[in-house]
Each structure stands twice: as structure tokens, then as C-alpha cells.
Design a protein around this nucleic acid. Structure first.
Length: 287
DNA sequence: AACATGGTCAACCGCAGTCGC
DNA sequence: TGCGACTGCGGTTGACCATGT
């Protein structure tokens, strides 16, 4: 007994959004907010399903979105959070103001994953890929310093993710929130300040971070020790001279293009007059 | 200059969780 | 308490663009 589709698919448009559709959706949402996504397309005069509208809004039209490449701090944070949370992109995205889960997921799959692999790190487990230069020694031979234990611990969430995401992801939702709360609390959504501090905050206040060099490790997971594994994030940014890239330039050059691509400057239409991003975010969320 | 290949990103699909009746 | 509807999430796909041959 299958579920009903989220909307009547007959006659509904699919595929890339046009500038006109974007404009309709933004105009509607900015003036009405969204009470329930199912009604949005009808009320906004769009031949799309609500789900599609929500996605478009969430991933592309939201005023608080940053566009462009992730900064190195953001990448570091993503790696760090991924080590803790696994593929829970929405959770990770929640720690990066202005970034969407889709964007982070894409960035992970296209950039970070490759870099990690190139470095010989398993992007899933954040551990060295098995039979490379330094095969894992038997546990009894591992003499892991605290730092190594921290990194080893990063394996836990990933393994849960890989093996049994369901229970881990579902039942522990609140626990996760609490666990990482220090980081998230320091980063209200839309704050726009993306620095490395959340990562280190998470690292220090929460569970040991993969990127952190702080020695707070206590409960290493037996069997996951990696004796002399370098800090993955430090290593990551040494690869391909990423550190040397002109991130600021890249970032500054990207934002406008995205808007130009859709042929409409969304927020030219909604100048400061009556438009407050912060307020709008809550308007949209609250319905 | 044309074609082939690879990379990136936006969007869709299906599942799971939550909420209301 | 059970059922159905809605929302959100993560995985996957397909189109577009850039680069290499």
C-alpha cells in the first residue's frame, strides 16, 4: 500500500525553475510566508508541487543564503562535523549559516571527498584507507596518544551512519542537538559569521573533534585507534595548495552571478523598506 | 574547430519521522 | 490508539559547463 504522492503529479511542471517562477514564489513567500507547502504553489500560481517549491526556496531562493564556494573554514567545519555526525547534512548545514544541506552534500561529494581520498583518508570513516602506505597495525601494537584517540573516536558516528543510520539518526536526534549545542548556540542561524571558532568550540566543548588537537580524549572506541594519523583537516588544506587560494576573491566573485543566472535580482525587488532578513526568516518558518 | 570526457550543481524521488484527527 | 497527511532528509539522477584531445 503505497503512499499517495505529495501532490497530484499530473499537469505539474518539473525540471529547472524559470526566473518567472522564482519571482512568483519569492513574491508570494515574502508577502505571505508559508502556512503549508502544499498550498503554496496553488496560492502562488505555480504549476509545481509543494515539495518542489520548498526545495527551491530552501536551496536557492532563501534570502539568507550564501552563494559560492565554501571557505576553508567552512570546509574544515564540514569535515569536522561530518566526522561527528556522518551524512546528516541538515545537521551539518545547521552549523553553517547560509549554507544548505544540498550545497554541503554536493560540495562534500564533489570536492572534499576527493581530497580526502587523495590524501588516503576514507571519507566515510575519516580513517586512513586500509592498505595504503601505513596499514593499520594490530590493536595491541597501537600506542595511541590522546590526539590519535580523538581522531579515532571520530569514527563512531560514521560507523553508525554507515551501518544503522535509522536508529542512530532518529532516536538520538535530541541527544545530537544537545551534544553539539555549544557550537550551534554560538551560531544563530543567519548570523553570517562563519569562522573556525564553531569548529573548535564543538571540538572543545563537545566530543573530541577530529580536527582538534585538544587532548580531551577519554573514551576511545576500542579498535579504532590510529596511532600516528595526522590531523585530517590540517592535511586537507595542505593538499593542492588550497591554503594559498584566494578565497576571499572567489567568494566575492560568486554571489552576484548566481542571481544573474536566474535573471532576476531577488532582493532588488525587496529593498530595505519592510524587508528584514532576520524577520523574514522567522516569518517564513513560522507561517 | 569539433568531439569526448569529466566535473559540478540543481532538482527529483522515496523513505522516515512527526503531527493532527 | 491507529491512521492518514505533511514535512524534512538523504541519496541519486540528469543537465549544463569546462577542459582536454
Amino acid at each position: 500500500m503505497g503512499r499517495q504522492p505529495c501532490c497530484e503529479k499530473v499537469g505539474l511542471k518539473k525540471g529547472p525553475w524559470t526566473a518567472e517562477e522564482d519571482q512568483k514564489l519569492v513574491t508570494f513567500l515574502l508577502s505571505h510566508g508559508h502556512c503549508c507547502w502544499r498550498l503554496v504553489p496553488k496560492l502562488a500560481g505555480l504549476l509545481r508541487c509543494g515539495k518542489s517549491c520548498r526545495l527551491r526556496w530552501t536551496n536557492y531562493l532563501r534570502p539568507d543564503l550564501k552563494r559560492g564556494l565554501l571557505s576553508e573554514e567552512e570546509e574544515a567545519l564540514v569535515i569536522d562535523l561530518h566526522a561527528q555526525l556522518g551524512n546528516r547534512w541538515s545537521k551539518i548545514a545547521a552549523r553553517l549559516p547560509g549554507r544548505t544541506d544540498n550545497e554541503i552534500k554536493n560540495h562534500w561529494n564533489t570536492h572534499i571527498k576527493k581530497k580526502l581520498k587523495k590524501m588516503g583518508i576514507d571519507p566515510v570513516t575519516h580513517r586512513p584507507l586500509a592498505p595504503v602506505a601505513q596499514p593499520l597495525a594490530p590493536l595491541t601494537q597501537q600506542r595511541d596518544p590522546p590526539q590519535a584517540r580523538e581522531e579515532a573516536r571520530c569514527d563512531e558516528p560514521s560507523k553508525q551512519q554507515a551501518s544503522s543510520q535509522g536508529p542512530a539518526a532518529g532516536a538520538d536526534e535530541n541527544e545530537d542537538e544537545e551534544e553539539i549545542t555549544p557550537a550551534s548556540a554560538a551560531q544563530p542561524h543567519g548570523a553570517g559569521a562563519t569562522t573556525s571558532s564553531p569548529a573548535s568550540a564543538a571540538a572543545g566543548a563537545v566530543s573530541p573533534s577530529c580536527s582538534s588537537s585538544s587532548a580531551s580524549a577519554s573514551a576511545a572506541t576500542p579498535g579504532t585507534d590510529v596511532a600516528t594519523w595526522p590531523d585530517p583537516i590540517d592535511l586537507f588544506f595542505e593538499v593542492d595548495g588550497i591554503m594559498g587560494m584566494d578565497w576571499a576573491g572567489i567568494l566575492s566573485g560568486c554571489g552576484d552571478d548566481a542571481a544573474a543566472d536566474i535573471g532576476v535580482d531577488l532582493f532588488d525587488q525587496y529593498p530595505g523598506d519592510g524587508f528584514d532578513e532576520q524577520v523574514w526568516m522567522y516569518t517564513g518558518g513560522g507561517g
